[in-house]
Design a protein around this nucleic acid. Structure first.
Lengths: 277, 277
DNA sequence: CGCCGGTTTGAGTCCATTCAAGAGGAGTGG
DNA sequence: CCACTCCTCTTGAATGGACTCAAACCGGCG
């Protein structure tokens, strides 16, 4: 419960401060939130479609994903989450969850009562705004996924997904080397991209043959990041990341970011983020 | 610039109050927001992908849509908006817009500086929360669209889109009769559902032949609402509407839509989650 | 009237699916 | 250690849904 070891919630502060500047008082309030740690095996449903008033979670370690089920048994994966992500802001403010949230790998999480977060948001406008922006970013990602699923070829969709997850891992400080963890099965890649597992397999083979990536037991290596980005029509803007390392920027984004007269809020956020590290 | 007729912003209050209860003071503050009215012809870009710091709008009349462009010229429509909707919460808090916002029909709108809304949100937690929830609802709709585009047949996708727009019009008090306005061309339906215009045409013909709907010059008639819902795998939950009239509710909304599915490790879930409670 | 945007229609093609069946690996229990 | 199961990945052949590329049709409008 609420205790004196605040370090567990540090990622929460880091996350939110990356969205809206937070003063020391606000940081402290966040760190003092009541919470409970837990760990779940693969496949655990954290929230199930139709459940009432779920609380929400900070993902401390491992991977999770959101999904929806169709009447005919079809499943669509809506997003993937990794260490440091806030889970289920989406559901927690509604009376009933409209999608599932499931552990993709064994996970560690901190469970935080929704009530206490809302109270904090009422008390500190900066926290409220950070939560709001976090939700807006989530929406932006959803939109890019729509684009991906609706208007790209199988090859592009899969390359795009690999780009997104790889970059997000990089930003979360996971897997600094040439290898990145890959938590999804081919079937799950299919569910995320609107394809079948079989066709994912074939497309993956083609990508490998072209030297764009190699997958081995739950690992990906990407020899040529720029090439994979191009193959996936990937531009990282939509993730609204605080600061993408130069070697992983795409020419398009770099071009725009280098324009000096850029907006002030982004830069403020950036410096804030740097301070945390 | 800002004028003295506050009635124009009444839909804004109505919208937000539907998300979170607002006191008289908060309502008054909203109505006193500085704003400027404008009207735009069909096709006007209100915001263009890559634009910086757009302000935001209240749609007073007409239809608008959001879209994204791929590098190869592909276009994905991300959502459709109608009278009373808040436009571009999505973009306005970021440095740069990540998608387009365009007039689908001639529209009337009230333009509100983002700054003043944010100030209001800082001042009144209830307003901040309402805006947040509005954003969450938007995310919920995006998720359903992902499901639609990724995991449904052409027939289902199109039927679903018709259901959504029809119901939202009903809720906004437009078109009380058996006819509803239909602002989208077949090409645009394709862009919204991840199909081509040609195939939309053929699918539409099939739907008409089955007596599920008829389209005439910018009008739709739906003889059997339940049948169209079934054809589109449509459940209105995801829209998070305040109150859906009984004749338009679907039978499925009542009882839990718990898909049995694989749920292999579902057993672990219950014990664990019980512990959390 | 002629233009123009939207709808309709046709024929051929291709991308992705379906339905199998087999292979590889990891974990389990005897 | 093996046999066993389960899960994931792989491969093949046949099918089909949606796409492409036209061209024609239609109504509204200047």
């Amino acid at each position: 419960m609420s205790d004196i070891t605040p370090s567990v919630l540090a990622p929460l502060v880091r996350k939110l401060a990356g969205r809206s500047p937070l003063g020391p008082e606000e940081r402290k309030a966040l760190l003092c939130l009541p919470h409970r740690e837990a760990s779940c095996p693969v496949g655990t449903y954290l929230v199930r479609e139709g459940d009432k008033a779920p609380d929400f979670f900070l993902l401390l370690d491992g991977y999770a994903y959101r999904s929806k089920n169709g009447r005919n048994g079809a499943r669509q994966i809506l997003g993937v989450h990794l260490r440091g992500d806030l889970l289920d802001l989406q559901n927690s403010l509604f009376d009933r969850a409209d999608h599932n949230l499931q552990a993709l790998t064994p996970i560690e999480l901190a469970y935080i009562p929704t009530r206490s977060i809302i109270d904090l948001a009422d008390l500190y406008p900066a926290i409220a705004r950070a939560l709001w922006i976090e939700t807006l970013v989530d929406g932006s990602v959803s939109r890019e996924w729509m684009m991906n699923i609706g208007r790209r070829t199988a090859r592009q969709r899969i390359a795009h997904l690999f780009c997104e997850l790889t970059l997000r891992q990089k930003m979360a400080g996971i897997g600094g080397g040439p290898d990145y963890a890959w938590p999804l099965t081919q079937e799950q890649i299919g569910d995320a991209t609107g394809l079948t597992g079989v066709h994912v397999n074939r497309t993956l083979q083609a990508l490998r043959e072209n030297g764009l990536m190699t997958t081995g037991r739950r690992l990906v290596t990407i020899p040529d990041w720029a090439a994979l980005q191009a193959a996936g029509d990937f531009r990282s803007d939509y993730l609204h990341l605080p600061a993408v390392p130069p070697e992983m920027q795409d020419p398009f984004t770099a071009h725009h970011a280098s324009a000096p007269a850029a907006a002030t809020t982004g830069l403020a956020r950036l410096s804030h983020f740097a301070r945390l590290q």
